[in-house]
Design a protein around this nucleic acid. Structure first.
Lengths: 123, 123
DNA sequence: TCGAAGCCTCACATCAGTGTGAAGGTCAAG
DNA sequence: CTTGACCTTCACACTGATGTGAGGCTTCGA
């Protein structure tokens, strides 16, 4: 599929699809005329990218974890050639994500508690 | 306390403390000589701000929720003058935060699953 | 064959968060 | 009284994510 259709189906402007490519988050092939050609799976991939970007991750972090995120089951990088160091890096990313979750959950709880304390009495 | 001490105690550069003030996240008083004067509580407040910023929230969103985040117990805005509309806005923020948490948790789980599938077999 | 629509690259603009430095005022300690 | 540490404002610069437009191809349908 070409960039226009991908844009329509994901709701992401073509400008950003090209940007994600520049950031090595997407790797479309090129047709003979130079047009980008995306596989069907790009729709889901763009969804992933948007979700993570909207959740405050940088393209750099997304680039680091994206290869290991392609859905349950088919492990994309062969388990064999995953050096221990890569596993450690990955664990680091997991930890950072967990920290964010903790911080957000903590503050969500505070807001919820505030709301609960106010609403019953509020007009 | 003045800006230098606050910076030292929080590890946040003075530049950013001034920026947060410009963004209406901090409201130090001014001494006679023009120096900013922060209350003791500013240390915790700056911690809050940093955590949320590091978790990917914008200063705009932080500004919106910060008043309701001052710890359990003393509800800062009097519950009486919290109009229903404010409660609705707040609920919207909570929902957005929850979406982020969900997305991050989902992807954390994927990474963890990948790691679990790879590590036992990995060298 | 012509025009419109879609694609290409390039480049400048914006916003948020931050770094850095200049030019100058305040104050305490030597 | 001077020096040095601390404070002030102002301003320019960078990065990351994104908007926008120019100039020029390709492709397709009337």
């Amino acid at each position: 599929m070409r960039i226009g259709e991908l844009s329509r189906r994901t709701g992401v402007p073509t400008r950003l699809l090209r940007y994600y490519e520049e950031q090595h988050l997407l790797h479309p092939e090129r047709a003979g005329n130079g047009y980008r050609s995306y596989p069907e799976s790009a729709v889901a991939r763009v969804g992933q990218i948007r979700g993570l970007l909207d959740s405050g991750l940088t393209t750099e972090m997304i680039r680091a974890i994206l290869p290991y995120l392609c859905g349950p089951g088919h492990l994309v990088p062969a388990p064999e050639d995953v050096p221990a160091q890569t596993a450690a890096l990955l664990q680091g990313h997991i930890d950072r994500i967990q920290s964010r979750i903790d911080c957000l959950a903590r503050n969500r709880d505070r807001l919820t508690a505030y709301l609960a304390a106010v609403r019953p009495g509020g007009r």
